[in-house]
Computed example of a mutant assay.
Amino acid sequence: MHQLIAAPYADHHLLVRPGSPRAARLPLRRYEELRTPASSVAPAWLADAARLAWDMELSEQAVNEIVLVRNHSPYGYGRASYELNLGCNYDCEHCYLGLKQFSGLDWPDRERLLHVVRDAGVLWFQLTGGEPMIDKFFPETYELAYELGMLVKILTNGSRLATARNLALLTRLRPNRITLSLYGATADAYDGLTRRRGAYRMFLKGLDAAHEAGLPLDLALIITRHNAHEADQMRAFADRYALPYREYTHMSPTIYGGAETLATQAPNHLADREPFRGCNAGHTFFHVDPHGMASICKVGRDDAIPLMTTGVEGLSRLGGVADSLMLRTGGCTGCQLSGTCRVCRPLAKVYQEAEAPLDRYCQHSTTRS
């Protein structure tokens, strides 16, 4: 299995190592040299780069056994996310997935989908759900994505991290990052939010096993009305493990248009969003749902493209979809303050369709005319 990946990314080339956040800029001539090596032995410059970036000593293996060289893609997508399944072993009432149905692609179609993602140029690939590790094809999906030369990030509740098969797989083929959601600092708060007795115990078991294995971890602190009283304890929990974390306080309507999730917000903990300045959703990034439908992101799911029938060529339409979804229409038409709006148009549309109170998503709710 490869130790390094050489890949086009945006308008340049990178040398990356699975399991490491570091990357080295690769001149075009060096990238081309790796594509068609003059000899089977790793060149001296590659050994120097590996030593400098990762303190890594290359063995006497052939260069094509050390480096996986990714081909150029005409589609130019560097990142993507994939919901393996909407099913979950928790029942959090704040979850934007709503129904959490267990359904998705069979293995032959999923295998084809992963090749489509690779052919789109994706280097950073996020596996999510639902809970991805309870999906019956999670190990096969993860391993194939890794073999195809993608740096894999996993979003998980951690409840299945300690299982022997998953831990062995992730230790052998290291992910780029594992982000665990933290739903409370005590069993009472954690189990209460997830509505699953023993969930906190499973989370700790998974976190401890992954931490001991030296896997790259960080935490997502989910702060709702159920656990807001433990916010400081949750931060202290992350500090005890010396793990980086981000806090999430804004709950979104469900992907089916339900507003029931909004009641879980802790109003005193809502953090101000930065003004929205645009993003590359649909242009250099895309999202795939469990049935192979590609959209610009997890929020903007309108006009999704069926990759199982269109193949990678279908992604050529996604940029136009993104541009149309980013237009400020509907409930935002005529707003004179849209230049400082803190939510993107697709997210505002989700709130509006759920008939959410304006103050749930618009910082101008008290000044809008």
Rank of each mutant, 00 (worst) to 15 (best):
A209W: 07
M202D: 15
K298A: 14
M308R: 14
L325W: 04
V63A: 06
C344Q: 10
A162V: 07
I222E: 05
D272W: 03
S40L: 14
H250C: 03
P175M: 06
H72C: 07
Q233L: 14
L4Q: 06
L58Y: 10
P21N: 06
G214I: 10
I255G: 05
S181W: 02
D188Y: 08
R70H: 08
I223E: 02
E111Q: 12
A271R: 14
R29S: 15
A236W: 08
R201H: 14
A120R: 03
L99F: 11
A231C: 06
T261H: 10
S59F: 07
Q363R: 13
T179W: 04
Y248W: 13
D48Y: 08
Y142E: 00
R51L: 12
T309A: 14
Q126V: 13
S20Y: 11
G206Y: 03
R177L: 14
H287Y: 15
G158T: 03
R172K: 14
Q352G: 08
L167P: 01
K205C: 09
S73N: 02
A259S: 15
S338R: 13
A49R: 03
V288S: 06
L327S: 07
E131A: 00
V312H: 10
L151N: 06
R201D: 12
L173A: 01
P43A: 06
R342P: 00
L325R: 03
S338V: 15
K136F: 12
E83H: 13
L127P: 02
A185V: 04
K349S: 13
L207I: 03
N166R: 05
P132L: 09
N85S: 15
M150S: 07
W107S: 09
G130L: 06
A199Q: 02
N89E: 11
S338H: 11
L46G: 00
R30E: 15
E212I: 05
L113C: 00
P346M: 02
D302G: 11
L155C: 08
L337H: 15
A209C: 03
T186S: 14
G282P: 00
S338G: 03
R197W: 02
L14E: 06
L207F: 06
F285S: 01
A62P: 05
A348W: 08
F102D: 11
E33W: 12
Y248R: 11
L99G: 10
K136R: 15
A304S: 15
P74L: 02
T366C: 07
A164M: 08
R196F: 09
R273Y: 13
M326Q: 14
L4R: 05
S103Y: 11
L315S: 09
A23N: 00
G214F: 03
M293E: 11
G130A: 09
N280Y: 13
A50Y: 09
S338M: 13
W54C: 08
G319T: 09
